[in-house]
């Protein structure tokens, strides 16, 4: 009983119970914003200085240096071939590495994200 009464009270008098919103189209087609757009809009909003949101909870960068792994086998690689810039773990790998054509070495470098000349 109580809950029903409170419901009736909270409903304003001017609202007709049979009211149907005419603005609501049945099948509306919408262009959804992409995540990039959402993030950039969020960034551009005037947040207070110490407000915490999506961009501010990123994990901090690591203090440890990145480990090096062989491009061919994935084993820990202490060596780098100065010619191709490929990393390798032992001499067998090096001998196979010497036989590789240019496009394959470039592919390996691209996989590691080291294909740019600068880096």
């Amino acid at each position: 009983m109580n809950s029903e009464e409170s419901k009736v009270e909270s409903r304003p008098v001017f609202k007709c119970s049979s009211f149907i919103n005419a603005n609501k189209p049945a099948n509306k087609k919408r262009a959804w914003k992409s995540l990039k757009q959402i993030i950039s809009t969020e960034r551009s909003l005037p947040w207070p200085e110490d407000h915490i949101h999506y961009s501010s909870i990123n994990a901090p960068p690591s203090f440890l240096p990145a480990e090096k792994f062989s491009d061919l086998s994935g084993l820990p690689a202490p060596y780098t071939d100065p010619q191709t810039r490929l990393r390798f773990a032992n001499k067998e790998e090096y001998s196979t590495l010497l036989t590789l054509p240019m496009d394959i070495t470039a592919g390996y470098l691209a996989l590691r994200g080291a294909s740019s000349i600068v880096g």
């Binding site: 994990a59 901090p60 960068p61 690591s62 203090f63 440890l64 240096p65 990145a66 480990e67």
Partner: peptide, 20 residues
């Protein structure tokens, strides 16, 4: 544990983040 294995990701590892 070591996101730096994948080039381009410079975040700290899980254990470090937990401690942080």
């Amino acid at each position: 544990m070591k996101p730096s294995i994948i080039p381009g990701i410079e975040q700290a590892g899980l254990a470090q983040c937990i401690a942080k």
